[in-house]
């Protein structure tokens, strides 16, 4: 049983399509002692901003049925530490592609951070999180309008030679319109979806569980909605899509790929099972065999 798990993202070869999603795998090194990171297709690093950020007050996490809410608030050491310390340290133990995930609260911040990530040798792909609030526009998230999503894309593309993937928010009325605007503005690819805005209340304390009241809902529960969005966007756009949202098994990976994803990110599942990615990768050839799939490339967008 020789199965070809490899895929190509903008000319970059991934030995398999399974990627831990940003924010659910730290800066990679945190898990280096737990399993061989080189089995992964790629790693998407924790979201990074220009300045170091402590993030939100705790509790930052809430249990939900088949999922969880998080409100970490982009805790990170800043782009300079990412490119000078985190990435070089990861590169000592890991040789597959690295995806830097960049966040910003202004177009300037996106531009400066992405230029620094682009100049960092150990980084292969730049993923831009546009779910952050724009401090110059009343705090409305960049990713909630086609115009501001395109603005970020143009700004970043002007300073990057490496492939740029825009990570889309699902908290919008028409994700296809925003995906198309990013593609038209020059995005090399799209990652979708980010988390869904959610909330839980502790009914005994009569207070929100999360200190910041609301947070991003993710986990198995969102899979059908994420899959639907991947399907719609992949069929409306020509650029490659990294599918993300509720993926927890090799079957989910194949389903996402049939919907149109070229690569698949695993997020919240890592938090309940730190070995989720290597387990899914090990399971893939068996599921492919069962479904008479020889190469994963053959199933992308076939539904």
């Amino acid at each position: 049983m020789v199965k070809d798990l490899s895929v190509s993202l903008c000319g970059i070869r991934l030995q398999n399509p399974v990627i831990p999603a940003s924010g659910t795998f730290g800066f990679g090194l945190e898990l280096a002692d737990s399993f061989d990171l080189d089995v992964l297709g790629a790693i998407s690093l924790k979201g990074t901003t220009l300045e170091p950020r402590y993030g939100n007050p705790t509790p930052r996490v809430a249990e939900c049925t088949e999922g969880m809410i998080n409100s970490v608030g982009l805790q990170n050491p800043g782009i300079d530490v990412l490119v000078s310390e985190k990435v070089p340290a990861l590169r000592k133990v890991y040789s597959q592609p690295v995806i830097a995930n960049i966040s910003g609260f202004s177009l300037d911040e996106y531009r400066i951070c992405c230029a620094k990530a682009d100049a960092c040798e150990g980084i292969d792909i730049i993923e831009v999180n546009i779910s952050c609030p724009n401090v110059h526009n009343g705090g409305m998230a960049f990713g909630t309008s086609a115009e501001s999503a395109a603005d970020v894309t143009r700004t970043v593309k002007a300073v990057c030679r490496k492939p740029v993937f825009i990570k889309l928010s699902p908290n919008v009325t028409d994700i296809v319109a925003i995906a198309r605007a990013c593609e038209d503005a020059g995005a090399d690819g799209l990652t979708l979806v980010n988390t869904f805005l959610g909330m839980r209340i502790d009914i005994a304390r009569r207070k929100p569980v999360i200190a910041n009241k609301m947070g991003g809902f993710s986990g198995r529960a969102i899979f059908p909605v994420a899959l639907r969005m991947v399907y719609q966007v992949a069929h409306a756009c020509k650029v490659p899509v990294m599918g993300c949202g509720g993926v927890a098994s090799a079957r989910d990976v194949i389903e996402m790929m049939m919907a149109g994803a070229t690569a698949v990110q695993v997020g919240a599942e890592n938090l309940r099972n730190p070995f989720a990615c290597p387990e899914i990768i090990a399971e893939l050839p068996y599921v492919m065999d069962e479904l008479h799939i020889d190469s994963l490339k053959d199933i992308i967008g076939t539904v």
Binding site: G23, T24, L31, Y54, R60, A62, N70, V72, Q75, L271
Partner: peptide
């Protein structure tokens, strides 16, 4: 502290 992964990679339980 309320934890997510429990293994240091999700940063849900950070304190100053």
């Amino acid at each position: 502290e309320r934890m997510g992964c429990g293994a240091g990679f999700c940063y849900c339980c950070s304190i100053q």
